[in-house]
Amino acid sequence: MYENKNLNELEKRLGYYFKSQTLLKKALIHRSYGNENWDYKNTNNERLELLGDAVLDLIVTEYLYLNFSDSNEGELAKLKSMIVSEPVLAEISLEIGLGDFLLLSKGEELTGGRERESILGDAFEALLGAIYLDSDFNSAKEFALKYLEYRILHINENEELIDYKTILQEYAQRVYKVIPIYEVIKEIGPDHKKSFEIGVKISEEIFIGVGKGKNKKTAEQHAAKNACKKMGVNINEAL
């Protein structure tokens, strides 16, 4: 299934050449593939993903500490959560074309797994973990910041990365002493391509915001965004 020319092509895209391509191979194996292929039954990228997640946290935290000296701990924590979020990591994987090289089950393949945010985000973390093991922290940092630095410096310009659910919750707790309640209004489409419409309430029976998305998490974010705009919540103060 793996051809050297494919891995070499990926390395060319990455701008990083592995001493051990075995690590690169492992970073590309989704758990679903092992469930269908006996030879890979106990092999997937989840351990590398765990390691990469920790490495990424340190890279971003160090960068923020050194470059955002006027920000306090809470502000740095919010920035970090936005930067290492699934949408950002998935966007980077799409930019690299990492999805083209993943090993997925037939089911994941048929349901759009190569473009699914969760899979792409996890794959980037696994890849970073593999680079760290293959070389050292500085090499992993150089690789990560090649894709992250511009995004970090312009993070507040990307409205899609703002955590409206947290902003709305903090506002609701401060002003109304309650937390928002999210309810599914309707589900649209077949099981393999379902989308959701979700509403959010604050101490009322009526929805103050409604959002749609390919999954509940996205729909809730859109609902919170619409609620914040309707209620006049100052987003800039929350960032």
Score class of each variant (00 low, 15 high):
Gly34Ala: 05
Asn35Ile: 11
Asn37Glu: 12
Asn37Tyr: 10
Tyr40Asn: 11
Lys41Tyr: 14
Asn42Met: 13
Asn44Leu: 13
Asn45Pro: 06
Arg47Glu: 14
Arg47Tyr: 10
Leu48Ile: 01
Glu49Trp: 05
Leu50Gly: 06
Leu51His: 00
Leu51Cys: 00
Gly52Phe: 00
Asp53Phe: 03
Ala54Ser: 08
Ala54Cys: 02
Ala54Ile: 05
Val55Phe: 02
Leu56Pro: 03
Leu56Val: 04
Asp57Gly: 07
Asp57Val: 11
Ile59Gln: 04
Ile59Gly: 05
Val60Gly: 03
Thr61Leu: 13
Tyr63Met: 11
Tyr63Gln: 10
Leu64Asp: 09
Tyr65Lys: 10
Tyr65Asn: 12
Leu66Glu: 14
Asn67Tyr: 07
Phe68Asn: 11
Phe68Trp: 12
Ser69Tyr: 11
Ser69Lys: 15
Ser69Asp: 13
Ser71Trp: 15
Ser71Ala: 15
Asn72Trp: 11
Gly74Thr: 11
Gly74Lys: 14
Glu75Pro: 08
Glu75Cys: 11
Ala77Gln: 12
Lys78Pro: 10
Lys78Gly: 10
Leu79Pro: 00
Lys80Asn: 14
Met82Lys: 15
Val84Ser: 15
Ser85Lys: 13
Pro87Lys: 15
Val88Arg: 11
Leu89Gln: 13
Leu89Pro: 06
Ile92Leu: 07
Ile92His: 06
Ser93Asp: 04
Leu94Lys: 14
Glu95Lys: 15
Ile96Gln: 07
Gly97Lys: 07
Gly97Gln: 07
Gly97Ser: 09
Gly97Arg: 09
Gly99Ser: 06
Gly99Ala: 05
Asp100Trp: 00
Asp100Tyr: 03
Asp100Asn: 04
Phe101Ile: 03
Phe101Met: 07
Leu102Gly: 01
Leu103Ile: 00
Leu103His: 02
Leu104Tyr: 00
Lys106Cys: 00
Gly107Met: 05
Gly107Thr: 05
Glu109Gly: 00
Glu109Leu: 05
Thr111Ala: 00
Thr111Tyr: 01
Gly113Ile: 02
Gly113Leu: 05
Arg114Lys: 09
Arg116Gln: 06
Glu117Met: 06
Gly121His: 05
Gly121Val: 03
Asp122Gln: 05
Phe124Arg: 02
Glu125Lys: 15
Ala126Val: 03
Leu127Gln: 06
Leu128Asp: 07
Leu128Val: 14
Gly129Phe: 08
Gly129Ile: 08
Ala130Lys: 06
Tyr132Leu: 05
Tyr132Lys: 04
Leu133Cys: 07
Phe137Gly: 06
Asn138Lys: 08
Ser139Asp: 11
Ser139Glu: 14
Ser139Ala: 14
Ala140Ile: 11
Ala140Leu: 12
Ala140Ser: 13
